[in-house]
Design a binder for these strands. Structure first.
Lengths: 338, 338
DNA sequence: ATGAAAGCGCTAACAG
DNA sequence: CTGTTAGCGCTTTCAT
């Protein structure tokens, strides 16, 4: 294995000079920098990660805790994961993956052993046991999702409150007076996962403002559950002319089910979804939707961590992404019959 | 930060003794082991990962390269990922995530810096540029998927050849004489991804043996593409009474499309899928399927790496998982009309 | 069964 | 702008 001393000898400089050339932590004459880089390439030098982390107390690795539990839409998670890895690489960092099932112990382990410099936690609940641990770890961290107590932590999420409101406003503007929200599986609400409950409350607040009558229907992520909700809605609440769907997994099933119940989208029933744009574009018809900007949130998360790690830009507190609604073919003005 | 010397002092032993207690690399009297462990817990000691990797030249981290490209079913990838992380933790290893887009350079980097001890590569193509690099890296590695040249490498995959054959045999046993295979998107075949082409060839070989007439239809992972394939099949090849689906993403769309074309599953058309059991169970009707055993393959991959890392059980060569077909409600004997 | 001590390869003062 | 050197915290011979 070729080491820094080999490079130094080959280039006729001191080891520290090689180190500084590579890290850019002090100014080096263009001449020697060139010579060193040439030697680095000639010998195929790769600094030993462990030695580096020992000497600098920086591993250049981030931990990412991904959710495993039911109720989360897998493609969205995956998009977060890949975006975070890509963003981390831009800052010359790698990503270590932790699954939720190691729980709090995993956080303690990777932080305690200095395996990672910072931690990203996805799918944070309102009263998440990891939150106090993160606080006591005293390492940079960012939570994707908003817990009840954010003091001293960096959190980031889509403003689901505004997203819920935005959906209702859009439908209210189109003249709808009775709107149903079809949401995540019941367990997601029981866990008090922020994104689900915040959407509901934003939705309800907007409904109160606009004097729209609403109801909320949690829904399992299966076709059967989707059909059941539509059947119930059609039978018990035929006056509902629009729905907001906050459950990517059943979006297509719901549309199909409405069609099968003789209610055409958007003529008989309008549909707005909160889901990734890619999904909303590929359904038939295209669904008016509020985007879940996984890529942007992932990039912003990494940026926040890097700011904290370099002490330059220690963004603390909560960052909300403003939701954006895109009109597609699934919403229309309320029909004026009756 | 508490270090090994602190623990040693607290327990009244030498630092090396603490190290040996923790690693179990030499026999320690029950007495001192207890004392040391007590001190470890009392002080909350976590060995520094970098120092450890520097001294032992083992990082206890595995790299996992995940695919990003289109054509792969995301939930299956995710299942692999989480299973690999979980399996690695059983052996006290962590998992570093690499995305495909860093390409060969990512492999060189993590191996060259000794960031990882071993590498798992998913979605390996027949002529994969990473294969020669993996070979020259001289680190334990396992490929999920089978390249053209496996010399000196460990590979593992479902025996898709057998899977394709198994599907056809099952349908032939039920009396079907004309069978279509609806496969992955065209680009997957163009890339010569082994799993897709091997399925097709196993399917065709079995068809030749059983004198069944077959056709193969690549299919994009969209509802529209699924509808188009079904329409084409119904119009151009009405004599086809059974299909094999090797594309998880469109399985449900295909079934729906057949129903909409007035062909009931399984009475008018039998459907066999190659997909995870979880998916096959939740469709309506349940689909007879050959399982993609992500969890088993993931666990086996990790086990292979561990064998190589400990030099105990250096499993080389190719491991094929034998496919298993589970009958559900989507297949029936061919109707005897005409 | 345990201790002492020599590195592992790199970074970051300190010195010039 | 560059060189010298003292660790970083752990593992692992080599001793006993």
């Amino acid at each position: 294995m070729v080491k820094i001393d080999d490079v130094a000898r080959h280039a006729g400089v001191a080891p520290s000079t090689v180190s500084y050339v590579l890290s850019g932590k002090r100014t080096i004459s263009e001449q020697t920098r060139e010579r060193v880089m040439r030697s680095v390439r000639a010998l195929g030098y790769h600094p030993h990660a462990g030695a580096r982390s020992l000497a600098s107390s920086r591993s250049n690795v981030l931990a990412l805790v991904i959710p495993l539990r039911s109720g989360m839409h897998v493609p969205v998670i995956m998009q977060f994961v890949t975006s975070i890895v890509t963003a981390a690489r831009e800052y010359d960092h790698d990503v270590l993956l932790l699954t939720q099932d190691e729980g709090v112990a995993g956080l303690r382990r990777v932080a305690g052993t200095s395996l990672v410099d910072a931690i990203i936690v996805m799918d944070v609940e309102l009263f998440d046991p990891r939150v106090p641990v993160l606080r006591e770890l005293r390492r940079p961290s960012v939570l994707i999702g908003i817990p009840a107590e954010t003091e001293g932590l960096s959190c980031i999420d889509l403003d689901f409150n505004a997203a819920g409101a935005l959906c209702l406003e859009h439908l209210a503007d189109l003249g709808h007076r009775r709107v149903a929200l079809i949401g995540s599986p019941p367990e997601v609400y029981k866990r008090e996962t922020g994104f689900a409950t915040r959407t509901v409350s934003g939705f309800k607040q907007a409904a109160a403002r606009r004097r729209v009558t609403v109801s909320v229907h949690p829904c399992e992520s299966t076709q059967l559950a989707a059909m059941a909700v539509v059947a119930q809605l059609t039978r018990m609440q035929p006056e509902v002319t629009a729905v907001v769907v906050h459950n990517e997994a059943v979006l297509e099933f719901l549309i199909k089910a409405f069609e099968n119940n003789g209610r055409h989208v958007p003529d008989d029933i309008s549909v707005v979804a909160i889901c990734p744009d890619e999904l909303a574009e590929t359904t038939n018809p295209g669904v008016t939707s509020v985007n879940i900007p996984a890529k942007q949130i992932a990039e912003q998360s990494v940026k926040i961590l890097m700011g904290q790690l370099t002490h330059e830009n220690p963004i603390r507190g909560t960052t909300f992404h403003t939701p954006r609604l895109t009109e597609r073919e699934s919403t229309a003005a309320k029909a004026d019959k009756k």
